[in-house]
Simulated scan of single mutants.
Amino acid sequence: MKKKIAVLHAQVPFVHGGAELHVYALKKHLIEKGFDAEIIQLPYKWYPANSLYNSMLAWRMLDLSESNGQKIDLVIGTKFPSYGAIHENKVAWVIHQFRQVYDLYNTNIGYAGVPDGSHIRDHVKKFDKQALQEAKSVYANSKNVANRLERYTGIASTPLYHPPMLAGQYKSGEYGDYILSVGRLDPLKRNDLLLRAIAKTNGKIRAKIAGKGPELENLKKLAVTLKIESQIDFLGFVPDEELPDLYANAFGVYFAPVDEDYGYITLEAFFSQKPVLTCIDSGGPLEFVKDAENGYICEPDDEQLADAMVKLYENRNMCKKFGANGLDVVKGITWDHVIQELTKTL
């Protein structure tokens, strides 16, 4: 009989991003390896404070020992607070913690300014420590997440990288006239910085921005203000089957979020043999991008980014060389290794 594995996921209803791709892909590859895998998810809401408490409690209260009279052999917790589930054979693969009480605590989205914020922070920390210490193995989806986990909770974890969703479909095409940005349009992704940099390239460079999110209208207004609207294509949601071509024909990829946990975009770019532009404070991408070898690592400064973009735009041979170097960095990242690690306790 196939071993039954439950992949645990905290789902923000109607929001689908990297975390969702992560768990869907994990289920798919577990099944391909001969396991009976299922995603178990609960709706997640972090505001007001009592909703956050309820979300943590809900995961602690689940009975995941069996289903329909058959034993669940392994549970894999991923996003906070899903790894709080109780099971005799629990493994955690931490996508990210509730960063608003950790590294983002004193930011405009953190809990420092929330009533009773310090108490909420202490409660989440206690939850994380207890839940993760129960796990037989703790993995993180990047070194950045692993370092953050140890810094704030004292819990050691093993970085475990996984390929992007469309691994095997990416390809290298022409090094065209545009730089590509892909992902949810959120302030932390800093597409406004990209637009400000484009405005300093004297009309040389176009950008294609693929994705939806709360910043879309602000970005469109900024493009008008900067008088670069003719250079920017806001593509909205792009179907999976169209993404490889977008990557294939860009001369480079912009991915400079604030302290990203992992970031599929870096890997998608390198599998497409495209150089990556990122920033010194971007977190996850810095585990792969090497300055002046497979991309450029800049200060979060529009002039410096503009200079780096122009260097790439004006030297397609450099783009090709950087792209090949990027592929060398990521080509060994496979789902086979991921599944082997996560199922060691079976």
Rank of each mutant, 00 (worst) to 15 (best):
Pro81Val: 08
Trp335Pro: 07
Gln231Ile: 00
Ala92Met: 07
Leu166Ile: 07
Asp281Cys: 07
Val23Gly: 01
Asp36Asn: 14
Ser157Pro: 10
Glu66Gly: 08
Asp291Pro: 01
Lys90Cys: 08
Lys220Asn: 07
Ala256Pro: 00
Asn89Ile: 14
Asp307Met: 08
Glu66Cys: 11
Gln273Thr: 11
Gly213Arg: 07
Gly154Thr: 10
Gly211Pro: 12
Ser172Val: 11
Asp116Lys: 14
Gly84Gln: 09
His162Arg: 12
Phe270Trp: 09
Thr278Cys: 07
Glu38Thr: 10
Ala269Lys: 08
His162Ile: 09
Met61Leu: 15
Ile339Cys: 06
Met318Lys: 15
Pro239Arg: 03
Ile297Pro: 01
Ser230Asp: 13
Lys221Tyr: 12
Ala256Gly: 14
His87Arg: 08
Val7Asp: 04
Glu229Tyr: 15
Gly213Met: 11
Cys279Pro: 00
Lys136Ala: 04
His22Gly: 01
Ala324Tyr: 05
Ser65Leu: 07
Glu303Arg: 10
Val329Trp: 02
Leu104Thr: 09
Ile280Pro: 00
Tyr105Trp: 12
Gly211Phe: 12
Asp301Thr: 13
Val7Asn: 03
Thr107Tyr: 03
Asp291Thr: 11
Arg196Gln: 15
Ile155Asn: 00
Tyr161Phe: 15
Leu52Thr: 10
Asp73Ser: 03
Phe251Asn: 10
Tyr102Thr: 14
His337Asn: 12
Gly117Lys: 02
Gln41Pro: 06
Ile109Thr: 09
Tyr102Cys: 11
Gln169Asn: 05
Ile31Tyr: 02
Gly84Cys: 09
Val101Trp: 01
Met165Thr: 14
Lys290Pro: 01
Ile155Gly: 00
Ser55Gly: 13
Gly69Trp: 02
Glu20Lys: 15
Ile205Ser: 00
Leu219Asp: 05
Asp291Ser: 13
Asn325Lys: 11
